[in-house]
């Protein structure tokens, strides 16, 4: 091809550079061959019983909005509910909702694994909401049994 000096070093260096730079392209071939990336299922349907019971047309806001901004909304809610005693959210359709993560959102999106975790895992985000807030009865039971177990050990 052409004359080149310190070939071994240069090729090693270039190889390392190329390997690192193209890592996102080849990593699944060698490293995680089994798990192909799957979009968090966009078609999971929330259990709308709660909404219907309370006469809501659906979620408080549309999907695109919620997907991009739910954390800002929740953050805003928590300040309003706790600090300003403003507990009712009125959405763009004029419907009134109780501002509550566990009392409203999770009533329909009762399956945390599907509705929260799948996307959060995909995006590598770990929210700390659930350090305090308790999700769903199932989980509570699990937590309770865990808590009891700890007591027994003590």
């Amino acid at each position: 091809m052409f004359k080149m000096y310190s070939k071994i070093k240069v090729f090693t260096g270039v190889f390392i550079f190329l390997a690192l730079a193209t890592f996102p392209f080849w990593n699944k071939v060698f490293i995680v061959s089994k798990t192909n990336y799957e979009m968090p299922d966009a078609n999971i349907k929330p259990a709308l019983a709660f909404a219907r019971e309370n006469g809501f047309s659906g979620c408080i806001e549309d999907r695109a909005f919620m997907r991009a901004k739910h954390m800002k909304l929740l953050n805003h809610w928590r300040n309003e509910v706790v600090r300003e005693n403003k507990k009712t959210y009125i959405n763009s359709k004029g419907e009134h909702f109780n501002k509550s993560l566990t009392g409203t959102c999770l009533k329909c999106h009762s399956n945390k694994e599907e509705f929260c975790d799948s996307c959060h895992t995909s995006a590598g985000v770990k929210p700390y909401c659930f350090d305090c807030h308790i999700t769903g009865i199932q989980n509570t039971n699990q937590l309770n049994s865990k808590a009891e177990a700890i007591h027994e050990i003590k």
């Binding site: 566990t102 009392g103 305090c132 807030h133 308790i134 999700t135 769903g136 009865i137 989980n139 509570t140 937590l143 309770n144 808590a147 009891e148 700890i150 007591h151």
Partner: peptide, 13 residues
């Protein structure tokens, strides 16, 4: 949470 025998899901810990 280690000290709660029975969790009330309607109120955060």
């Amino acid at each position: 949470r280690k000290g709660i025998a029975k969790l009330n899901p309607d109120f955060p810990t």
